[in-house]
Design a binder for these strands. Sequence first.
DNA 1: TAGATTGTTAATCGATTAACAATC
DNA 2: TAGATTGTTAATCGATTAACAATC
Lengths: 223, 223
Amino acid sequence: MFRVELEKERVGSLATVRRLPAYLHLLKQLNADGREFVSSTHIGRDLKLQPDQVRKDIASTGIVGKPKSGYHVPALIHAIETFLRWDNNTDAFLAGVGNLGSALLGYKGFEDYGLSIVSAFDSSPAKVGKVIHGRQILHMSKLRNLAERMHIHLGIIAVPAESAQEVADAMASAGIAAIWNFSPAGLNLPENVIVENIDLASSLAVLSRKLAIRLSGPAEADL
Amino acid sequence: MFRVELEKERVGSLATVRRLPAYLHLLKQLNADGREFVSSTHIGRDLKLQPDQVRKDIASTGIVGKPKSGYHVPALIHAIETFLRWDNNTDAFLAGVGNLGSALLGYKGFEDYGLSIVSAFDSSPAKVGKVIHGRQILHMSKLRNLAERMHIHLGIIAVPAESAQEVADAMASAGIAAIWNFSPAGLNLPENVIVENIDLASSLAVLSRKLAIRLSGPAEADL
DNA sequence: TAGATTGTTAATCGATTAACAATC
DNA sequence: TAGATTGTTAATCGATTAACAATC
C-alpha cells in the first residue's frame, strides 16, 4: 500500500503534465536564441499563466532555480524531457490507415516527442501492401505477434468506432502497455492498460456550448 | 456585473459539458433499442461514472427525472442536443488541407454534432482548385471576405504552426466567433474569440508520463 | 545593500463524492 | 406499502491562487 502512494506521487498532477509541452516548446526557442536563464514571470507572460503556477509546475520536475536569475534553460529542457521520457525514442504501432491514420503516419511533429510510428496496420485488403508515408501497411492480423516480438509498448488506434474495441483487445493481449485512442469509441480494457483518448466530441462540445451562449445568451440576459 | 454571473452560470461546469457527448451517444443507442426510460445507475455503469455525477450532469441540462423509473430517453437526448446547440446545423470553414485538414474534411462523424465544413482553404497553389472529399479548395486570401458574407461563426485551423496565428487573425477579423485549433501553436486572440485546442502534445505528455512510471517506476519502488 | 526572484505554506475555488430526505 | 430512484445539501478532494519569508 505504500508503493501505491509512491507511484501516485510520482505521476505528479496531470494538469501540470499537460502544461509541460508548452514549457518545453518555449524553452527550446529560448535556448536556440542563446538565452541561458529564464524567470517564472517571463514564462508566465508568454504562456498566459500565473508565475506561481509556473514555479509549482517546474518544481514537480525536480529543478530548482536561482533567486534573481531564474531557471537554467538547458537544465530545464533536459528535466522536462526526462520527466516525460521524451529524451529516449519510443516505438509505436498504428492501427488503421484511413484519412486520420494516414495523417498521423505523415505527421512530422511526433519526433519532437520522441515518438516513432514504426509499423502501421489495416484490415482492408485494398490497403494492405500499399506504402503510405514511407511505411508498408501490414494486415491487422499480424499486429499481435509483431508487437510481442518487437516489444512494442505503445499503440495508436485510428480505426472506425466499430472495430476499436477489437483492436484494443489485440493490443492489450500483445502486451502493449499504453493506447493512444483517436477513435470516438470508449475502450474497455484491464486496469493495467493506460488509455488516453483524443476525444473530438468532448472538445467540440465545449466549443459548441460556449458558442451557444455567445450567440444566444447575452441577448437573453438583456431582457 | 450581474450579467457576467448569469453567463458564467449558464455555461455550466466544463467538466460536465465534456461528458455530455458520451451520454448522448449512449442515449441514442438506447433510443434505437426502443428503451423509454433510463436510470442514472444504468448510465453510470455503462460509462464508468458515479450515479451521483450522472444525476448532477443531467440536472445541468434542465431535465428532471421520475423517481423509480429514471429519465425519459427522448427528452434527455433533446435536452443535451439543445444545450450544446447540436440540434441546429452549424456551418464552419476549414483552413489548411494537408494530411490532417484533409482527414477532417473527409470525416463523416461531424454531422452527428450538427457540424458542416462548407468550405476549405489553403495557401498552396498546388492545392487551390483541387477537389478534396467533394469540396473545391479555395485560396486562403478569400477566407476573410467569404466568412463575413456567409456569416460563418466557426473556424477550424489545420495549418502548420508557423501560419496558425496569421490564419486565426484573419478569422477573427472576419467576425468568426469560435476557433477549433488543431495546430500545435498557441493562439493569441482577443478575449471575445472562443478558442478550443486539440492539443496532441498535452495528450501524449500524459500518456508518456504514465507510461514512464509504469515502465521504470515500480522497479525503483521495489529497491 | 536593495531588489528581484524563488520556494513554501495557507487560502480559495471548483469539481467530485457521499449522505440522505423526498417522491413515485 | 415497500423499494427504487431522484434531487439536494454537506464533506472531501485536488488544483489554483495568494501571501510571504528565504535567498542570491
